[in-house]
Amino acid sequence: MQLGTRWTSGDDAPKAVPDALRRGIRSVDDAMPADELGQPRPRWTLTWLEGKPIAELDTGVIVELDADGEAVVRHDPEDGFG
């Protein structure tokens, strides 16, 4: 059993996050516009489903690994933004 974790977008991902997933997360973080109003940044949640890591941002963005071990970014269709 692997436990998940949370961290704030823009911060370094925890060591438990595989490198390929980390690169996908960083690409999402880098693409987010700066908040000039000083609102809190969304947070990532790392979970493990059947031994595979999945990172989900509070906004509904999901980063997971495909069959080749490459990061894939998608949106949760149930978050209201999809």
Rank of each mutant, 00 (worst) to 15 (best):
G80K: 06
F81N: 07
R26M: 10
M1G: 11
D11M: 13
D79N: 10
D66R: 00
D76G: 03
A55W: 01
L3W: 15
A13T: 15
W44E: 02
P53D: 03
R6S: 14
T47G: 01
K52L: 02
D58W: 02
G4T: 10
A20I: 06
R43C: 11
V63M: 08
E64S: 08
R6Q: 12
R41W: 00
L65G: 02
E64K: 11
G51M: 10
S9L: 09
P18A: 09
D19R: 13
G80L: 05
R74E: 06
R26A: 15
D79L: 01
S27N: 14
D30S: 12
G51P: 01
G82S: 08
A34V: 13
L37V: 13
L57T: 01
V17I: 09
L46M: 08
L65P: 03
L3T: 14
V17S: 04
P40M: 08
D35A: 03
P14D: 12
V28T: 09
L21M: 08
M1Y: 14
E56C: 01
E56S: 07
W44T: 05
I25F: 01
T45V: 02
G69N: 10
D19Q: 10
V73L: 09
G60N: 05
L3Q: 14
V63T: 00
M1Q: 14
L21A: 03
V61Y: 00
T5R: 09
S27Q: 10
P14H: 14
V61G: 00
E64T: 08
D79V: 00
T5D: 13
D58P: 00
L57P: 02
G60Y: 03
L49T: 06
R41C: 03
M1I: 14
G51V: 04
P77M: 12
D30M: 14
M32Y: 05
A55C: 05
L49C: 00
L49D: 03
R6D: 10
T59G: 04
G80A: 04
T45F: 06
A31Y: 03
M1L: 14
A16S: 10
M1P: 15
G80V: 02
K52Q: 12
G60E: 01
D66M: 02
D35K: 05
D12N: 12
D30T: 13
A31H: 12
P33I: 11
W48G: 01
G24K: 03
T59N: 11
S27E: 15
A34T: 04
V28E: 08
V63L: 07
G10F: 11
E78P: 00
E50V: 02
P33N: 09
G69T: 08
D79K: 05
V61L: 01
D11T: 15
R22M: 11
D12P: 15
V61K: 00
T59W: 04
T47K: 04
M32P: 03
A13W: 07
W44A: 04
R22I: 07
V73S: 03
R6C: 09
W44M: 07
L3D: 13
L21Q: 02
G38M: 05
S27T: 10
D35C: 07
L49K: 01
D35L: 04
G80D: 07
V72Q: 11
R22Y: 06
A34G: 07
D76S: 12
G60A: 00
T47Q: 04
G69C: 11
P77L: 13
D58R: 01
V17N: 05
V61S: 00
P77T: 06
L49Q: 09
D58F: 01
E36Q: 11
